[in-house]
Amino acid sequence: MYNFTYHRASGLRQATNLLGKLDEAKLLAGGQTLLPTMKQRLAAPANLVDLNKVEGLSGIELQGRALVIGAMTRHAEVASSPVVQQAIPALAHLAGLIGDPAVRHMGTLGGSVANNDPNADYPAACLALAATIITTKRKLIADEFFTGLFETALMPDEIVVKVSFPLPKKAAYEKFRNPASRYALVGVFVAKRPSEIRVAVTGAGTSGVFRVPAFEEALKKRFSPKALDGLGVPADGMSSDIHGGAEYRAHLVGVMAKRAVAAAME
């Protein structure tokens, strides 16, 4: 790890000021991605602004027809929360599938969405549930927030504060997990919302999380795994590595989507 200067922020305003003023500054949330990345020298921020002592950034609350989760809420809290299990069980299920217990005790929702790893789970939930990402500056809908591989619409001095998930009628997440890294080789989140159906895929796309309009159209006509028979996604644009080629991933998108629809119907 390269040396850096550590700053412990006591509030959001201070954290924002530090981010704006310091060179090569990065926010430290749970550290489960950032710290190993720094240890491998793939990232070398000159300044780290630690959010762990900032009050009011974590918590889970049902506000009307939306579930609002603070950015510093750990995956383990989301997975074990009776409020989440009741309101959006698919989201609690997803959080419980992230990494392993040690990762879930530290890793945060805000860290996951801000990093936008193409294999991460939360971006699929945000996109399928039509979540709104609330930052220190504005509110961004998920479709505008995730802009590419490890890329988001966040400005350099903008901090994710919370994420608001509108309650779906039905939802499910099915993940084909890489058994070693526990990241999604392919993960599909299907949400039946009052006005629309959304299918979001993580782990597969070379530009990160994406929706599958053809699946959404078919499921709108008939919400059943059979509606997806004969439909698929092209291998073009799928990522390919030693764990799975593009064609395999494209195939898995169809399989996991069917499983997710079946799970949502239960």
Binding site: T37, R41, A43, F150, D241
Partner: peptide, 27 residues
């Protein structure tokens, strides 16, 4: 844990920071 995809880039001037031992100045 890091994913298989890592695109973070290393700024050119970090090697200077590599050579300095950080002071134990945080209690």
């Amino acid at each position: 844990m890091t994913s298989d995809v890592q695109l973070a880039t290393r700024p050119a001037d970090v090697s200077a920071r590599d050579r300095v031992d950080a002071a134990k100045n945080l209690v």
